[in-house]
Design a protein around this nucleic acid. Structure first.
Lengths: 141, 141
DNA sequence: TATGAAAATGAAAATCATTTTCATATTATA
DNA sequence: TATAATATGAAAATGATTTTCATTTTCATA
């Protein structure tokens, strides 16, 4: 049995009020503290884990640690979203692309691998960083 | 200037002798110790970092930590390899697939995102684990 | 509305991969 | 060989996450 507590509600409410945003456990702690309802870090982690297991939030793992975001209900029309992470600036982009969906179907049908898009992060360079990198090649040292 | 030391050679030799295998720093330490040429963990990490920067090894990040493998020289005909990681059994599969290459070209051309295949790991379920999962659904509790 | 068992909390300690420090050892070159 | 640059490894530091445990809160039931 799970009890409803204000900490539990605060964590979910914070993520729910910031849809699309990816937050770390530390950022959540900070936000909740500033909002006047401080929640211990351990409790934050516990709720994030439970909320993820219950399908209310998604977790995205990066080399810099885990980030969490509110889970739009895909069952009710929400589009699956793919994640692109820029290795240079750390930004995480969301992409809805039919080619990607098709590729995942191909991997499943022809390579017997069922991709979990929520855990899969394409690592690379975003447009701005790629351009910056190119320019750097032409600069004087 | 970098000095050639037996530790440096041992690390590269170990990875080079196990092409295709993904090893953690701890596993490398273990293997080298058993082979009679122990190398300190800090030194292993230092060499792995330098070898990766120099292009001799690839690093793959997973929620369980980083893994390293010898870098086949792609410039001389080696095929780019894509990484699929089973969330259930932890196995990492290598895949050479033209659809994937095509998708990366699409992402670069149409979404201006340059994917780094070495850092990108598709997370999901391998064939065996997917089958096991399906069977489990039909089992009696 | 009281009671008590189950569940939740948070501070502090524990983990665990990785990095840094620093005193010592090794390498390459003059 | 001397010596300056570089490498080593043990131990300490880091930082994200998890666990422990004494205390507090929730909620079904009396």
């Amino acid at each position: 049995m799970s009890h409803s507590t204000k900490q539990r509600q605060a964590v979910l409410a914070c993520l729910s009020g910031r849809r699309g945003e990816l937050l770390s456990a530390a950022e959540l702690t900070q936000i909740l503290r500033q909002a006047g309802s401080p929640v211990g870090l351990a409790t934050i982690y516990r709720h994030l884990t439970r909320l993820e297991e219950a399908g209310f939030v998604h977790r995205v793992n990066t080399p810099e640690g885990a980030f969490y975001r509110y889970c739009e209900e895909e069952s009710s029309g929400g589009r699956e979203c793919f994640l692109l992470r820029c290795e240079s600036c750390g930004q995480i982009l969301h992409l809805d692309c039919s080619h990607l969906r098709a590729l995942y179907e191909h991997l499943e049908r022809d390579h017997h691998f069922i991709v979990n898009p929520r855990e899969t992060v394409f690592s690379g360079l975003c447009e701005a960083c790629a351009r910056r990198g190119k320019e750097a090649l032409h600069e004087q040292p």
